[in-house]
Measured scan of single mutants.
Amino acid sequence: MQRVNMIMAESPGLITICLLGYLLSAECTVFLDHENANKILNRPKRYNSGKLEEFVQGNLERECMEEKCSFEEAREVFENTERTTEFWKQYVDGDQCESNPCLNGGSCKDDINSYECWCPFGFEGKNCELDVTCNIKNGRCEQFCKNSADNKVVCSCTEGYRLAENQKSCEPAVPFPCGRVSVSQTSKLTRAETVFPDVDYVNSTEAETILDNITQSTQSFNDFTRVVGGEDAKPGQFPWQVVLNGKVDAFCGGSIVNEKWIVTAAHCVETGVKITVVAGEHNIEETEHTEQKRNVIRIIPHHNYNAAINKYNHDIALLELDEPLVLNSYVTPICIADKEYTNIFLKFGSGYVSGWGRVFHKGRSALVLQYLRVPLVDRATCLRSTKFTIYNNMFCAGFHEGGRDSCQGDSGGPHVTEVEGTSFLTGIISWGEECAMKGKYGIYTKVSRYVNWIKEKTKLT
C-alpha cells in the first residue's frame, strides 16, 4: 500500500490518463441519441435557420407576430419608411378606419389613436360632414345658397324668414311668412316636400332668348283662358290664391305678392273693366268669414305684352289694390325667389296649380277651390304637342294621358313649387288646347323671366 501511494504521488498524470480511459469505455446513459432527441424537440425550422439574422431580410411573422416588435424591426421587413409607417399605425392600436367614419364618399386613412378623412370636392370637416359648395344638395341650405369668396357655403332665406341657429334652416321672422300653410287642420295635408338634388348652379339658368321682337298675326285659340281631375282644397291650404270678379264672377285667378299687390295673367284683364279681388276665398257660393274683398285701382301688364300681336306672350300683369290686405292664416303671400332659384325650383319637376275653373272641358265651374299636382314636361315634348308657338318664356306641365289639367277660369292662378315646406311661385296658368285632352298640356308663363320686374313694381313704400 505504501508503494502504491508513492507511485500516485510521483505520477499524477498517469492516474488522470487511467481515469479518462475508464470513462470513455463506459456506456453513456444520461444523453439520448440524435434521433430520439429530435422526437422530443420537434420544432419547425425557421426561415433563416442556421444563418445569422443580421444578414437576412426581415420576416413579418418572425419579427412582429411571434413577439412584439419595434418600429426598427418592422422597418427591416418593409425596407421602406412609408410602408412601415402605414403598417405601424394599425399594428400599434388597430384600424381606426374600420367603422368607416368618413361621410359623403370620403376616404379614410388610419393613424395612431386617430384617423384622417380625405374629402371629395365640396366637403370638409373631420368626417367630411361639412358642405362647402352650393353645387351639392344646395349646400344643405333649406332655401338659398351662395358661395363666399373663400368658396364656403353661405345660406340665406327669402323675405319674412331668418336663418336658424344651425345656419342652414329657415324659420319665420314674421307672423305670416310667405308660402307657408298655417291653418292647423290643413298642415297635415301639406304636399310632399321637395329635397334639393345635386345641381350645376353655374349652368342652372337656361341660355334662352326671349323672342321679344317676333311679330306674329293673332292666333285663334280655343278655350285658351284655361282644375280638371283635381281635388277639393281645404280652407287655408292655398292662402296665396285669390279669385278675380268682373263682368262675371271667378273669371280668373291670381296670387298675393304682398298686402297691396296681386300677380295674374295679362290676358285676364281689360282696361276700363272694374275688377274686384277676393282673398281668403274657399267656396265661392258661401260666406265663410275668411274672405277679404278689395278693388283694383291700377293694372300693370308687362311692358312687352301686346294682345294685338299675341294674347299669351309675356302673359303676366300686376294688380294694385285700393287697401292693403290683412295677412292671416287664410290670406298669405306666395314666396318669389330670384331668377336663378325660381328656375331651379321649376326644374324640380312638379308643381301645384289651383283655381275655381271648370271641372271638365266646357263644363261647370268649381264651387270649392280645386288643386292638382302636375309634372313638368320637357321642352321637346311640349313643342311636338301643339302647332302653336311655345315661346321661351312659357313652359308645359300636365299629363300625356289627359284627364287632369287646369281649365277655363283658372287662368292667372299660381303654379307653385314647394321647397322644404315653403311654396314659391314658378308659373302662372296661361293657356292650353281644350282641357285635359290626351297628348295636350297646360301652358304656363315662366315666372323666372319676370321676377325682377315683379319685385321692382310691387315694392311697398
Results as ranks from 00 to 15, higher is better:
residue 328 N to L: 00
residue 214 I to V: 13
residue 420 E to G: 12
residue 396 C to Q: 01
residue 2 Q to K: 08
residue 180 R to E: 02
residue 390 I to S: 10
residue 274 K to W: 04
residue 407 C to I: 06
residue 182 S to A: 11
residue 143 Q to V: 02
residue 404 R to V: 09
residue 46 R to H: 01
residue 84 T to G: 05
residue 212 D to K: 08
residue 402 G to E: 15
residue 50 G to E: 04
residue 154 V to G: 07
residue 80 N to K: 05
residue 138 N to Y: 07
residue 453 W to A: 00
residue 252 C to R: 00
residue 200 D to H: 06
residue 353 V to S: 06
residue 324 P to I: 03
residue 391 Y to L: 14
residue 216 Q to M: 12
residue 101 P to M: 05
residue 330 Y to C: 03
residue 436 A to F: 07
residue 71 F to N: 03
residue 221 F to W: 14
residue 256 I to A: 01
residue 216 Q to K: 06
residue 17 I to R: 03
residue 203 N to C: 04
residue 305 Y to S: 02
residue 38 N to Y: 12
residue 327 L to P: 04
residue 80 N to R: 04
residue 126 K to N: 14
residue 343 N to T: 09
residue 304 N to Q: 14
residue 158 T to M: 13
residue 17 I to E: 02
residue 344 I to E: 13
residue 62 R to C: 00
residue 93 D to M: 11
residue 252 C to F: 01
residue 226 R to T: 15
residue 31 F to E: 09
residue 423 S to Y: 15
residue 152 K to N: 13
residue 158 T to E: 06
residue 330 Y to K: 05
residue 294 R to S: 02
residue 128 C to D: 03
residue 309 I to N: 11
residue 279 A to E: 00
residue 76 E to C: 01
residue 190 T to H: 14
residue 276 T to E: 13
residue 406 S to M: 14
residue 266 A to V: 02
residue 198 D to Y: 08
residue 374 V to L: 05
residue 349 G to C: 03
residue 133 T to Y: 08
residue 340 E to A: 11
residue 443 I to L: 14
residue 179 G to M: 00
residue 137 K to H: 13
residue 351 G to W: 02
residue 240 W to V: 00
residue 90 Q to K: 11
residue 385 S to M: 09
residue 210 I to S: 14
residue 403 G to H: 15
residue 404 R to D: 15
residue 90 Q to E: 09
residue 453 W to N: 01
residue 372 L to E: 11
residue 425 L to Y: 00
residue 128 C to P: 03
residue 328 N to S: 10
residue 178 C to Y: 00
residue 127 N to E: 06
residue 115 Y to N: 04
residue 277 V to G: 01
residue 295 N to R: 11
residue 350 S to E: 15
residue 424 F to T: 00
residue 435 C to N: 04
residue 449 R to A: 15
residue 428 I to R: 01
residue 389 T to S: 07
residue 32 L to H: 13
residue 443 I to E: 02
residue 126 K to M: 08
residue 196 F to L: 13
residue 433 E to P: 10
residue 216 Q to V: 13
residue 47 Y to G: 13
residue 399 F to Y: 15
residue 120 P to V: 13
residue 264 T to D: 00
residue 339 K to Y: 08
residue 320 E to G: 03
residue 341 Y to M: 11
residue 29 T to G: 15
residue 191 R to Y: 08
residue 99 S to K: 11
residue 336 I to E: 00
residue 383 L to V: 08
residue 414 P to H: 12
residue 403 G to Q: 13
residue 407 C to N: 04
residue 425 L to H: 02
residue 432 G to Q: 10
residue 338 D to N: 12
residue 349 G to R: 06
residue 350 S to Y: 10
residue 450 Y to S: 02
residue 314 H to P: 02
residue 227 V to M: 11
residue 261 W to Q: 01
residue 246 G to K: 05
residue 383 L to C: 07
residue 62 R to P: 01
residue 433 E to V: 06
residue 38 N to R: 11
residue 183 V to K: 09
residue 288 E to P: 06
residue 154 V to P: 04
residue 168 K to W: 10
residue 278 V to C: 05
residue 209 T to R: 10
residue 188 K to Q: 12
residue 446 K to G: 09
residue 72 E to Q: 07
residue 440 K to L: 04
residue 437 M to K: 11
residue 118 W to R: 14
residue 358 R to W: 06
residue 124 E to R: 06
residue 369 L to R: 15
residue 426 T to M: 01
residue 450 Y to A: 01
residue 301 P to Y: 09
residue 52 L to N: 11
residue 401 E to N: 10
residue 306 N to L: 05
residue 167 Q to C: 07
residue 425 L to S: 00
residue 384 R to Y: 06
residue 82 E to V: 06
residue 338 D to C: 05
residue 92 V to C: 07
residue 340 E to C: 03
residue 237 Q to M: 09
residue 244 L to F: 05
residue 244 L to H: 03
residue 357 G to W: 07
residue 377 V to Q: 07
residue 403 G to A: 15
residue 116 E to P: 03
residue 394 M to P: 01
residue 44 P to T: 15
residue 163 L to I: 10
residue 400 H to N: 09
residue 58 G to T: 03
residue 119 C to A: 02
residue 409 G to L: 08
residue 196 F to H: 13
residue 96 Q to P: 07
residue 7 I to P: 14
residue 16 T to A: 13
residue 88 W to V: 04
residue 62 R to Q: 06
residue 366 A to K: 11
residue 19 L to W: 10
residue 366 A to F: 09
residue 305 Y to G: 02
residue 424 F to W: 15
residue 376 L to F: 08
residue 446 K to F: 01
residue 302 H to G: 02
residue 95 D to M: 08
residue 54 E to T: 00
residue 211 L to F: 14
residue 101 P to N: 05
residue 368 V to T: 15
residue 454 I to E: 00
residue 86 E to Q: 12
residue 100 N to Y: 12
residue 338 D to M: 04
residue 209 T to N: 13
residue 140 R to P: 08
residue 281 E to Q: 11
residue 87 F to H: 03
residue 320 E to I: 01
residue 17 I to Q: 02
residue 201 Y to T: 15
residue 372 L to V: 12
residue 343 N to I: 04
residue 266 A to T: 02
residue 44 P to C: 05
residue 192 A to S: 12
residue 384 R to T: 14
residue 111 D to P: 03
residue 97 C to T: 03
residue 308 A to N: 11
residue 85 T to N: 08
residue 423 S to M: 15
residue 194 T to W: 12
residue 336 I to T: 03
residue 224 F to E: 07
residue 108 C to L: 03
residue 254 G to I: 00
residue 353 V to Y: 04
residue 10 E to R: 04
residue 55 F to G: 06
residue 97 C to H: 03
residue 296 V to G: 02
residue 134 C to E: 03
